[in-house]
Nucleic acid binder design. Structure first.
Length: 478
RNA sequence: GGCCUUAUCGUCUAACGGUUAGGACAUCGGCUUUUCAAGCCGGUAAUCUGGGUUCAAUUCCCAGUAGGGUCACCA
């Protein structure tokens, strides 16, 4: 009986070819959850074997994103670990060693064709509407591999494969899925198809988590594990995240952006974690707002959905509000400062926002809708906007004049939001509808459809500016 | 085209073969409030189609349909 429980080891292995998008992050997250849920090890490995596509700064960006959301790796290029180095370009000798092993077994051979020659063969197959298989062109004899030509894998046995995936269940593929693929490119770097297997073996990775696009190449990997005589790890493929307006995979081209842009737009890391976890996954109950610690506790990779999930900005915004509501006061203050334009970093504004957020928790909209621009921007408004529902311009103008009168008579030291509120409500209660004064007043001061209440607006603007804006509104109405 | 794979409200999803098919977002309506916003309450809304298996199918099987993935000296 295999009853000894093996320690779970997972890895996130991005290639430094640009910024990380939400799809990458989701994979990282699920991989991380799986390890942490089982008290296992989470490794960060950089797969930089395609030197042509490499983008400078990508690795730092990967660190930055993972740190932002709070994913901590146990082993990685920056912190080292027992299985280093953790950058593939520093492990070239290892791949050569494995390649040599395969050559000795007769399971690898130099590809005698040029890239162009292979291309011609491939095109011919496509024209004839059949699958192109390199192994059908496998030469009978070949030279010793000197490293100038690509080294190809010779599949040991062309057969059907069956395997189990923790998300997709039982999978299988016919022999057509197997081919002699390239292990080492002519530039000396290994291909992903080869070196990730070597690394996973060497690093003791027990669970391989990656995108659904790898389902169809799994037979190739299974074949390689056989050739290497190593027991394959547990495979886990994650369904794709789909674009908001279609069912296409959410890629960089169709709207998926740098994860850090979400940070700049005011999304909390807690939100990103929670939202991404819920794209294609769901706990056994109806709870939806989770911290990362809670997610680790309830996470179960096998509850992952098989079909792709569509990205939803609406739900993301909702979730962000929920997380903002739960922010401790100190954190909330930090967050507000980070979100607010510099010209709004003013004493009186902060409590105002705190107050409004405690009700609506929607600072993103406040910033986005320029709800706070009233402070430094003279409002521009249309006559109709000032008028409340069924009232007319005359009444509105008269009501504003009443307010103006009271405000002008208020002493400077009494001019604060509490007092203004009392005075204005007195006027408001004398009208058939409170909105007849409160609406035009709010609008006169802010010029906005959405804004804080008029008393606070007046307080922040100060007596002089308040009077000037009300006057302006009255003049527009007349 | 070959191979692989998926299918519950508009969207994300729940439902050991027996539920009035549940929740959330969005939407719609109402309430509340100090104008909006926010908040609260409520409504509309789904098992792709056709065959089986079964006393009973969203659930198991087959086919169809529709979608997705993959067929690189990219990962």
């Amino acid at each position: 009986m295999e009853n000894q429980t093996q320690k779970v080891v997972t890895r996130f292995a991005p290639s430094p070819t640009g910024f990380m998008h939400v799809g990458n992050l989701r994979t990282a997250l699920f991989t991380y959850f799986l390890a942490k849920k089982n008290n296992g090890t989470f490794i960060l490995r950089i797969e930089d074997t395609d030197k042509a596509r490499e983008v400078e700064g990508s690795i730092d960006h990967i660190y930055k994103v993972l740190k932002w959301v709070g994913i901590n790796w146990d082993e990685g290029p920056d912190i080292g670990g027992p299985n280093g180095p953790y950058v593939q370009s520093e492990r070239l000798d290892l791949y050569k060693k494995y390649a040599q092993k395969l050559i000795e077994k007769g399971l690898a051979y130099p590809d005698p064709f040029t890239e162009e020659e292979v291309e011609v063969m491939r095109n011919k197959a496509i024209e004839e509407k059949r699958a192109f298989l390199f192994r059908e062109h496998r030469p009978d004899h070949f030279d010793v591999w000197d490293g100038t030509k690509p080294l190809r894998f010779r599949v040991p046995e062309v057969k059907e494969f069956h395997w189990h995936d923790l998300v997709f269940g039982d999978l299988s593929a016919g022999a057509e899925a197997l081919d002699d693929y390239i292990l080492i490119k002519s530039d000396g770097y290994p291909t992903y198809n080869f070196c990730h297997i070597v690394d996973d073996i060497e690093m003791g990775v027990t669970h391989v988590v990656r995108g659904q696009e790898y389902v169809s190449s799994t037979p190739k990997y299974l074949s390689m594990y056989e050739a290497l005589e190593v027991k394959p790890p547990i495979f886990i493929c994650l369904p794709h995240i789909l674009g908001k307006d279609g069912n296409k995979k959410l890629g960089k081209r169709d709207g998926s952006k740098d994860v850090m842009e979400y940070n700049e737009e005011g999304y909390l890391p807690e939100t990103m974690i929670n939202f991404l976890a819920f794209l294609g996954w769901h706990p056994s109950d109806d709870k939806e707002i989770f911290t990362i610690e809670e997610l680790i506790r309830v996470f179960d990779i096998e509850r992952t959905q098989k079909s792709g999930a569509q990205w939803s900005d609406d739900k993301l915004d909702w979730m962000n509000k929920e997380h903002i509501k739960r922010l401790p006061e100190v954190k909330l203050k930090e967050y507000i400062f980070a979100q607010l334009p510099k010209e709004l970093h003013i004493g009186k504004i902060i409590p105002l926002i705190m107050e409004r957020i405690s009700k609506s928790s929607d600072i993103q909209n406040m910033v986005e809708n320029h709800e706070l621009d009233f402070f430094y921007k003279e409002p521009v408004y249309a006559k109709e906007k000032l008028i409340y529902k069924n009232t007319d311009a005359n009444t509105t103008s008269n009501n504003l004049s009443l307010a103006l009168d009271v405000i002008e008579k208020t002493n400077d030291e009494d001019f604060n939001s509490d007092n203004i509120k009392i005075f204005m409500m007195e006027i408001a209660d004398g009208l058939e509808n409170r909105g007849q004064i409160l609406h035009p007043l709010r609008f006169a001061l802010s010029g906005l459809d959405k804004s804080p209440d008029p008393f606070i607006l007046a307080d922040i603007l100060g007596k002089k500016e308040t009077i000037s804006r009300i006057n302006k509104a009255i003049s527009i109405l007349n």
